[in-house]
Simulated assay, not measured.
Amino acid sequence: MAAAIGIGLDVEAPEGNMVVDIGGGSTEIAVISLGGIVSNNSIRTAGDDLTAEIQEYMSKQHNVKVSERMAERIKIHVGSALTDLGDQAPEDYVVHGPNKVTALPMEVPVCYQEIAHCLDRTIAKIENAVLSALENTPPELYADIVKNGIYLTGGGALLRGLDKRLTDKIKIPFHVAEDPLHSVAKGTGIAIKNVDRFSFLMR
């Protein structure tokens, strides 16, 4: 609910909106209408899993040990949900780390296409969770969601091409929030400042 307020949705409106908040440890999916959460789905698959997948991939595919911090950097520089980003494609990122067998220093260039392949399984779990949430959405609100699109927020929303991949898979437009990392904090601040208007949140 805080994320929905933070991205500027009218949470009190008599229509349905779906928000997908991809955080570090979990992905929260909620359908919001008339100031309440009509249905929600939460899975323990999110940004941290994407980082762990990159760590495992670098170890298996390139025999290089990378820290969680380095895997996070790889995700930021060449992380992608699509194998074809067209003009938006980032340059390869050079990873430095020890060979996991010899411990000798290695320099490995990594491209976004291989990271997209390595993240595919985790992203598919998020896709399935969204589909499951849509299945449990009342028909009249489902129609609103198809019309309004689905809103992506949280750090995971910044993954290149994620909105397009989800749109292509689910056939509903996905919109990335303007400042996805801070939507929840922003929404909480707005609710506290306007406690009279958002009194239903305090119930």
Rank of each mutant, 00 (worst) to 15 (best):
residue 2 A to W: 03
residue 3 A to W: 02
residue 6 G to S: 11
residue 7 I to M: 15
residue 8 G to D: 11
residue 13 A to Y: 02
residue 14 P to E: 15
residue 14 P to F: 09
residue 15 E to R: 13
residue 16 G to E: 13
residue 17 N to V: 09
residue 18 M to I: 04
residue 19 V to R: 04
residue 19 V to K: 11
residue 21 D to L: 07
residue 23 G to V: 10
residue 24 G to I: 14
residue 26 S to T: 15
residue 27 T to Q: 07
residue 27 T to S: 11
residue 28 E to G: 02
residue 29 I to T: 13
residue 30 A to L: 06
residue 32 I to T: 03
residue 33 S to W: 08
residue 36 G to Y: 04
residue 36 G to R: 14
residue 37 I to N: 07
residue 39 S to C: 13
residue 40 N to L: 08
residue 44 R to K: 12
residue 45 T to Y: 01
residue 48 D to G: 02
residue 49 D to K: 14
residue 52 A to E: 11
residue 55 Q to L: 01
residue 56 E to T: 11
residue 58 M to E: 03
residue 58 M to T: 01
residue 61 Q to H: 10
residue 64 V to M: 12
residue 66 V to L: 10
residue 66 V to K: 01
residue 76 I to L: 14
residue 78 V to S: 03
residue 79 G to Y: 07
residue 79 G to D: 11
residue 79 G to C: 08
residue 80 S to Q: 05
residue 81 A to L: 11
residue 82 L to W: 03
residue 83 T to I: 09
residue 83 T to G: 03
residue 83 T to K: 14
residue 84 D to A: 04
residue 85 L to V: 03
residue 89 A to D: 04
residue 90 P to N: 13
residue 91 E to K: 13
residue 92 D to C: 08
residue 95 V to P: 09
residue 95 V to K: 12
residue 96 H to Y: 13
residue 101 V to A: 14
residue 101 V to G: 00
residue 102 T to Q: 06
residue 106 M to Y: 00
residue 108 V to I: 15
residue 109 P to A: 00
residue 111 C to I: 01
residue 112 Y to V: 02
residue 114 E to Y: 01
residue 115 I to K: 03
residue 116 A to V: 04
residue 116 A to K: 06
residue 117 H to S: 12
residue 119 L to V: 04
residue 121 R to S: 10
residue 123 I to Y: 05
residue 123 I to Q: 06
residue 124 A to S: 11
residue 126 I to A: 05
residue 127 E to Y: 00
residue 128 N to I: 00
residue 131 L to I: 05
residue 132 S to N: 12
residue 133 A to T: 01
residue 141 L to D: 03
residue 145 I to L: 08
residue 147 K to G: 01
residue 150 I to S: 04
residue 152 L to R: 10
residue 152 L to E: 07
residue 156 G to L: 11
residue 156 G to N: 10
residue 162 L to C: 02
residue 162 L to S: 03
residue 164 K to H: 14
residue 164 K to L: 15
residue 167 T to F: 05
residue 170 I to N: 07
residue 170 I to D: 05
residue 174 F to M: 08
residue 177 A to L: 08
residue 180 P to I: 08
residue 184 V to I: 13
residue 186 K to D: 04
residue 189 G to K: 10
residue 189 G to N: 13
residue 190 I to C: 09
residue 192 I to E: 01
residue 193 K to Y: 09
residue 195 V to W: 12
residue 195 V to D: 10
residue 198 F to Y: 15
residue 199 S to I: 13
residue 200 F to I: 12
residue 201 L to K: 09
